[in-house]
Write a protein that binds this DNA or RNA. Structure first.
Lengths: 152, 152
DNA sequence: GTGTCATTATTGATACATCAATCAGATTGA
DNA sequence: TCAATCTGATTGATGTATCAATAATGACAC
């Protein structure tokens, strides 16, 4: 690993750029597909996923933000947009008058259902199908290394 | 590679999510670092990089967009913001009255100079230093596979 | 109980990405 | 020539991310 001795090489820079560009392009395609299939944005999908996994399809807003690892204000803005479109509803919290409960609406659940299988299919098609099992394991290992390195 | 037979597995999904999350986090850190060192955003940096590589540190706007693989309107908005801050200037084009030439200003060149070495250092620190040479080669190979798969 | 502080959640400002619409100037073909 | 069309570039609208500021309530020490 030889940390800190050399400078960044041209090859390293190229791989970094390829990583950014390729993940961008993958995301762009999944995003287009998702919108076509369900009218949802990736952000919508993320929220609906977290919410549909919550007890009773409802969650305190701050708990939801915690689960999703989103900043509260980011979630609040996103929820505002989603509420306008009827994907979620905000209710007052019984146990804490400051709090809000986010509730999945029927429309939200429908859109999520419509999205989920095609989305998985698209991830498989554009991403998983591109790699051999060996490449796949290698990528897993690489990402673990990167994560550990970031946490340090 | 066994395309299209199975459905997306939980493991594949997890790796996809890890890929997205980890690249996001890396970008976030580089972005923070860049802003600290130079006051530039990643988008600013990208434009200044392309422009500083252009002949005479100037370029037709549409040519610049082509080199960067950005949509014209994206670049136009970005240039508008950068012009307000004095990082670039727009001049009328001599040979085509529709056209605009984008010119790197002294301030823009300064900011770019200030940014470039620390930025490379940050990529090395957060990304390149995390991987062994073997992992590095494997990642290069993986990205090539993904790109080829996307182009198909 | 009251004052202080922490927590919940929202809001506003700014930057950015994408899309559709626009506009001026260039080009082409009758 | 001049009408139709193409091209270079900008603009406005909408959705999104981040940051700082705010409002309201809760919790706790006293």
């Amino acid at each position: 690993m030889v940390v800190g001795r050399r400078r960044l090489s041209a090859g390293e820079l190229a791989v970094w750029r390829a990583l950014v560009d390729t993940t961008d392009e993958l995301r762009r395609r999944l995003s287009v597909q998702l919108a076509e299939d369900s009218g949802l944005s990736p952000a919508d999908y993320r929220v609906l996923l977290a919410l549909s996994e919550a007890d009773g399809k409802r969650s305190r807003s701050s708990r939801l933000a915690g689960v999703m690892e989103w900043e509260r204000s980011r979630l609040s803005h996103q929820l505002g947009r989603m509420e306008k479109r009827g994907l979620i509803r905000r209710e007052d919290c019984a146990t804490d008058n400051r709090g809000a409960e986010v509730v999945l609406t029927e429309d939200g659940a429908d859109a999520f259902r419509r999205a989920t299988a095609p989305h998985a299919k698209a991830i498989k098609k554009h991403f998983a199908d591109a790699l051999t099992p060996e490449q796949f394991d290698a990528l897993k290992d690489i990402l673990q290394s990167l994560e550990r390195h970031l946490e340090r």
